[in-house]
Design a protein around this nucleic acid. Structure first.
Lengths: 216, 216
DNA sequence: ATTTTAATTAAACAACTGTTTAGTTAGCGT
DNA sequence: ACGCTAACTAAACAGTTGTTTAATTAAAAT
């Protein structure tokens, strides 16, 4: 069994040449980027190696092969999304406020975590790892549906189709980031990923959704 | 110089074994599907060949190589989207009605033309062919922005950010189709691509957008 | 009918890419 | 300080994939 190497105990953890955990993590995060851009068959192990500053052999050393690495990436992402969203308590807050906090945290997640949405999209396009069937984000989706139903029953939201509307909410939040590389040419001056613009976008989304959903 | 073979003049154009135009078109449409799913580097010429029922050699015979074929696909798609949207006259109609006809025709286009949106997304993810810079869809986008500005000036629409809102409209319309392979697991009973559900989705989108945008 | 040309294919080729191997080195434990 | 083990590398290997070649066949032209 492998003994777990620790960070350099003295001085600080400046640069440490050999550390299994670290390089493994480096490969994984490089792989996320590569797979997010190019998908399973389009990704190149060479690129993943370069991105993480190791040789191709390391990938097989730690992850057996490309496909296994891809699965590892998928699992990693499921973990990350779960821990990001389990904190939110929708049940307590009033529906309008709950909607706002969901949208805010989802947009924040997408902006901090670009690769996630992109990889999710690759999965949608190619559907190889059956990411769509994985638990985790499905529950998140269902909680949006529930929230909408609750709001409708309370008479706060208009009578929309909860399922389709939940999809559309997801779409509004994701599209801006996932399609960014194409959208950025539209108004080159406006830096779409700057924190100010993201702030404006968040407001725009909330504005549109709240006005679109509220009764009366 | 190649003489252009015509369709069989007599009887009908049932099945014709050898016809450059037809096989070229077959390859092109097979390539659209393959590239839309797997992107440039992920696509396999072998698959494109199989999908179009010819040998790999034909691809190079007609399109030189994979990259050139990819460019041809991109050009083809620009043509198609242009001819689909140049017909719409937004200027004349009242803004609310114009918005509705844009959304309707955009959703219809996406539903009839699944690969387009998917390929556009691949471009967004990998940004290799600079599809985002290509003319055509940018103009379409600008016309949505213009429409929103007009509606705001007339006091029909609320004072939203026209640029961001245009992106969000696009997002709502696209996401449903582009992410379909992941969304379809959410409610397996509901056939998302059936004409009824698409109809419902169109109504849901229009409902959300109109309520979200209208003043008063 | 025959010739000619373009469309098409099968198989070889070449380039690329994922995986393995054998060997090297850093760092920990003693 | 020394040796052992795990982290790591370079290069070879094997499998895949894009492209080319040479031969074949269908259809148009004469």
């Amino acid at each position: 069994m492998p003994k777990t190497p620790r960070f350099t105990p003295k001085h600080n953890e400046e640069k440490q040449s050999r550390n299994a955990e670290v390089t493994k993590a480096n490969i994984l995060s490089a792989a996320i980027e590569e797979f997010a851009q190019y998908g399973l068959s389009g990704a190149r192990t060479e690129n993943i190696a370069k991105r993480s500053g190791v040789t191709k052999a390391m990938i097989c050393y730690y992850f057996k092969n490309k496909k296994t690495l891809y699965q590892a990436v998928l699992n990693q992402l499921v973990l990350e999304i779960n821990e990001s969203f389990e904190a939110i308590d929708i049940e307590q807050q009033p529906v309008e406020q709950a909607l706002e906090s969901i949208v805010r945290s989802y947009i924040k997640f997408e902006s901090k975590n670009r690769w996630h949405g992109m990889l999710w999209f690759q999965e949608a396009l190619q559907n190889q790892g059956r990411y769509g069937e994985q638990t985790g984000w499905q529950e998140g989706f269902q909680s949006i549906v529930k929230l909408l139903e609750k709001g409708i029953n309370e008479g706060v939201f208009r009578k929309v189709d909860p399922f389709l509307t939940a999809i559309n909410i997801l779409g509004i939040c994701s599209f801006y980031f996932d399609a960014h590389e194409n959208l950025k040419y539209l108004e080159p001056d406006r830096e779409l990923l700057s924190s100010e613009t993201i702030e404006q976008q968040t407001d725009a989304v909330l504005d549109l959704l709240v006005s679109g959903l509220m009764a009366s």
